[in-house]
């Protein structure tokens, strides 16, 4: 009996199914990451056309992009929107997450579903509706339209990430702080927020990236203004030039650097070690 059990367990852990799994998964992961690597390599071409591998390497397209006024303006607009949207989205979403977690259990699910519903609404539909409203208020093609529109799609992500952190947060930590003389606000400030900082950071990263990369809603709302994705799109529709690869690599770098910085800052804020 014991021997049979062993041999079956061995069979369960036998190498072949696992090997196939590893090989297949590696291919999938390659499929996920390779295009971006190829894109970055191609962006360093010195030719006037794209090819892989590039015959000669250089940074001429980066130079061109960086000194191009169109790209500068687009990058500036995208960054401006994302930098306004991220903190606002973090504050508003965190308030909602707290309200849901600390509010009555009854009705929580329904209200939460409503608060995160913009997440499952196709952006084309939202963009269409927002365009109509923006036209009515005569604010289309301005930050007054872009920022609230972006907030609508970023806040649900903050609610989800911060909500998940709050759920695992042990409320007695906050109560301990209260009994030690901290008011509700300071208890949250000194205890809760630092401990749920992974959720806050994730929410901030999501907000920034979603806003920075948003295309279709801004596409509807903008007439003359161009964010980076809009500029890339119109360039792409016109011609596939190496400059588009260089811009893509640059935006990739911006989001990657920002993510790393936020994660690192989060570590510092969180005081390092967080026990489960």
């Amino acid at each position: 009996m014991g021997k049979k059990l062993m041999s079956n367990l061995e069979g369960y852990r036998s190498l072949w199914p696992r090997r196939i799994l590893v090989i297949f998964s590696s291919l999938v992961l390659f499929f996920l990451t390779a295009p971006l690597v190829i894109l970055i390599i191609q962006s360093f071409t010195n030719e006037s056309y794209l090819s892989f591998p590039p015959p000669t390497y250089g940074t001429r397209w980066y130079t061109e992009v960086i000194y191009s006024e169109d790209w500068q303006n687009a990058t500036f607009l995208s960054l401006t929107i994302a930098i306004i949207v991220t903190p606002l989205s973090l504050v508003l979403g965190t308030l909602v997450a707290f309200g849901l977690e600390r509010g009555p259990k009854k009705g929580k699910q329904t209200i939460q579903a409503i608060m995160i519903s913009p997440m499952v609404l196709p952006h084309i539909v939202l963009g269409l509706g927002l365009f109509k409203i923006a036209l009515q208020f005569n604010i289309s093609d301005s930050l007054w339209a872009f920022v609230p529109a972006h907030l609508t799609i970023t806040i649900p992500f903050v609610i989800v990430t911060v909500g998940a952190s709050l759920q695992t947060f042990n409320i007695s930590l906050e109560e301990a702080a209260r009994s030690l003389g901290a008011s509700k606000f300071w208890a949250v400030w000194y205890i809760t927020l630092p401990i749920i900082s992974p959720g806050l950071i994730a929410g901030a990263i999501f907000s920034f990236i979603i806003s920075f990369d948003e295309f279709i809603i801004t596409f509807f709302l903008a007439t003359f203004q161009r964010t980076l994705p809009l500029e890339m799109f119109s360039t792409l529709m016109y011609q596939v030039k190496p400059s588009i690869a260089a811009v893509s690599a640059l935006t990739l770098a911006i989001t990657a650097i920002l993510t790393v910085v936020l994660m690192f800052r989060g570590q510092v804020v969180g005081g390092g070690k967080i026990i489960k």
Binding site: S172, E175, A176, R178, S179, L180, I191, G270, G271, I275
Partner: peptide, 19 residues
């Protein structure tokens, strides 16, 4: 409110601030 009562509280799980 709790912060204005002079009570010291020890929780079941201690509730030490992990950070």
């Amino acid at each position: 409110p709790p912060q204005n009562r002079k009570v010291g509280l020890v929780f079941q799980n201690y509730a030490l601030f992990p950070h």
